[in-house]
Every structure is written in C-alpha cells, then in structure tokens.
Design a protein around this nucleic acid. Structure first.
Lengths: 213, 213
DNA sequence: TTCTTTCATTGACATAGGTCAATTTTTACA
DNA sequence: TGTAAAAATTGACCTATGTCAATGAAAGAA
C-alpha cells in the first residue's frame, strides 16, 4: 500500500482508488539476470519497475542481443503492449536484483484512462519512450559505429571509468574489437586519451562532435 | 471551423473551445514534394495532417534518406517535438499535395492536457507512434534485407502492382539492386512468382513467413 | 508504331563491421 | 606477491549489402 502511494503515476489518486489498485496488484522480487518478460510473450500484467535496473533488448536472427534501453525505477515498463493488446516487442532482463509492481491490467483498464492525473502521467511515460525509440533509431540506423562511439564518449564519458569495454560495446551494439579499434583511432587522432583506471579524457571535443553531427 | 470539428482529436470539444482553437490555427496547403519541416528544425506549430500523404524520413551520413513512415490523414504529426520542446527528429515531406492544420502550440499548451477527451486522443496518437517506431527498429535493426523483403511481401504484396521496384526499395531502405536480386532468389526458390503488370503472387507463404519469424 | 527515357537486371568490385584466433595486458584472488 | 582468469588488442579473413557500369526491358511521348 505504502509503495503504491509513492509511485508518481498513482501519487495523486484517492484512497479508495489506491485501495482498489492494491487489491489487483502484487510486488514481485527478481534476482540479477532474471527475465521479467520475453519478446513475443502476451502481456497479462502491467509492470512498474520499483527497484533495480532493467535492460530491454531485442534478439536478431544471429541470436545477438540488441540493446535498446536500460530502465531505472520508478517507471512503467512496456505499457505499449498492455495498451495495444500486442505481444511484448522486446525482452526485459534484470541487470541487478530488483522489484516490480504487477498490476492485473484487464481489471485496471476500464477506468484507468478516465483519471486526468493518470492520463497526464501516461502521456509523460509514452512521450519518454517515444524519445527513447527515436534515439535508438538514430543510433542504430543513422550513425556509423565511429559516430556512435563519438556520441557515447560525449554523452557518457564517465561510464568508461565504471564499465569494462565489453559492457560498453554491448550497450552500443558493437563488438569489443570494433570499440577497441575505434578508441585507438581516436587516440591516434589526438581526440581523446586514456588516463589511469580506464578513464577517457576528451582533448578535442569539437572534433568529436563533428564525427556525429 | 468546420474542419476542426471533424478532427477526431478535437471532435468532442465544446464550441467555445473550438472557437478558441480556431483563433490560434490556420490551414495551409502544400504541393507534392514540399517539405513540412526539416529534421533539426525547432517546432513552433503543432501540425495536424488533414489531406494528402506525408513521408517521414531521416538522413544518414552518406546523405541517404532513411524512410520511417508514411502518414495518412487525419493525424497528429511529430507531436513529440511539441510536447518535449525538442527539435524535429526527422524530416516530413509531402508525397502528394496536401493540407495541414497549424496550431500555435505555445498558446495551446497551457490547457491542452486538461481536457480528458483530448488526453485520451493524445495517448492513442502516442501509442500509435510508439508502435511505428518499434516496427522501424525491428525492420531496420533486427531484420536482414531478405527478411525485410519477405515481410513486406506478406504484409503489402498488393503494392507491387502499384509501385515501381525503386519506390518499394526506398520504402524498405534498400537499393533496387538488392531488391531485384532477392526477388529473383525467391522466384528461383519457388516461393513467389511474378504475374503480369508487375504483380507478385505468393506460392509458398509458409516458407516466406519462416524467413522473418 | 517508333523513339526516348526510365526502370530492372546482372556482374564486378568496394566497404563497414563482424568473426576467429593469437597474444598481451589487466584484474582478482589465493 | 604470484598466478589464474578475464579482458583488451591486433591481424587476417568473412559477409552482407552497397556502388558502379553495362545491358536489356518497359513505358510514355511523338
């Protein structure tokens, strides 16, 4: 109960409504690497990520996982599938242990959209997801691997200090080999340099920006 | 005025509200090939496509246009940019002559989301766009060109009778050469055959489905 | 119908990025 | 601190799809 009140989507609801929600929802815990849902599954529940970090990916014909997004709490997950009654368009897997509020969507649906506060939150959530997907298209369809890496350095340079190159490569949907070769190239061009502990220092930001804009 | 009443998004509005909308909006006509907005432009107006067929595309580093979607009236266009105050993520160009309702978004914004009827329509529109983008990702990132073509034949075989292969290739973001080679391959495999007037007849639908599922 | 232009097909080749294997470097644990 | 395991680097090669050019086929204009 206390959990539901803290979810932005539901924070403005009346007590009676929250009580009703309470009755049709459960909190479920997941361990690292557990799957919340697979691509192609039919949705029964609406999922709200409460704790932990959730990775969304699709699988291509070679069996490679194509990274789409990493969700942080608190947020709706794959509500598109609920709203449209279609199967999940991607797989969701926990990167850490986590918790999810599962709501019986069918029971919710009828009056879910009537509440203006909820509508507004849904619009926010959908808008956010649309932006995510638009970025996925830009990154995966429009940019070359060099451009992707340049963009990632500009936008997420701190992650080089925290993650291994294999992990960064998988976020970028590139092989570690390609990432390594490209970083070497950037170093040779004098655009970046690598300080201790695997950190990247941008020397020539202008040049880096030019590579993807 | 009469136009606004016919737009599903606004059909349930009170007369006074429609009157207000009327004052901040204009209808503009476009010729074939004219651009409604360019990728990167800052949005001022909210656009509603009233007539004609509108092509949405992004441009990659080689200058190729990457086809995203073809809009049919009546629908909101690129509302994401309005809602988020970001620049247009793609270019919109008319394929035929057409008409657009342009609404001064800043004047609309304040009370736009308060009306539950409008909210619901916006949710519909956003959901629809999210599905479109999810399909773009599937087609452009997940599927091979062979799979894309197989899927297109299953879902749009009638278009082969209406469009030239160059046009189909551009919808699929492939070169005409690749399309031609793949169709020849499918013919040799006995999966399809080409009847008169450039029409495609599917002989082995099962096999075609297997190529992309 | 004939001519001209556009479109489709085909072959030869180019290229980005992936794959595989060998080697070196880093990390983590005993 | 030494050593095993994991990660990064590098080279050689592969593959899907694009590019370019030549030719043949279809469609529209005269």
């Amino acid at each position: 109960m206390h959990r539901i009140k803290q979810i932005p989507l539901f924070s403005n609801l009346s007590f009676s409504y929250i009580d009703k929600l309470q009755k049709i929802s459960t909190v479920k815990s997941f361990n690292k690497d557990e799957i919340l849902f697979y691509e192609g599954d039919s949705p029964i529940y609406m999922h709200i990520l409460l704790e932990g970090s959730l990775r969304l990916y699709k699988t291509n014909s070679k069996g490679n996982q194509i990274f789409l997004h990493q969700f942080k709490p608190v947020c709706l997950v794959a509500e598109l599938a609920n709203f449209e009654g279609i199967s999940y368009p991607a797989t969701a897997q926990f990167l850490t242990k986590g918790e999810v509020l599962k709501i019986d969507y069918k029971k919710l649906e009828n009056d879910f959209f009537k509440n203006p506060e909820i509508s507004l939150q849904i619009i926010r959530s959908l808008t956010n997801k649309l932006k995510i997907m638009s970025d996925v298209v830009t990154n995966e369809v429009i940019l070359t691997s060099e451009a992707k890496i340049a963009k990632f350095i500009i936008e997420n340079s701190e992650l080089f200090g925290k993650l291994k190159n294999t992990q960064i490569a998988s976020i970028l949907n590139l092989t570690p080999e390609t990432l390594s070769r490209t970083l070497t190239k950037f170093k040779n061009m004098g655009i970046i340099l690598e300080s201790d502990r695997h950190k990247i220092v941008v020397i020539n930001e202008k040049e880096l920006l030019k590579l993807y804009t």
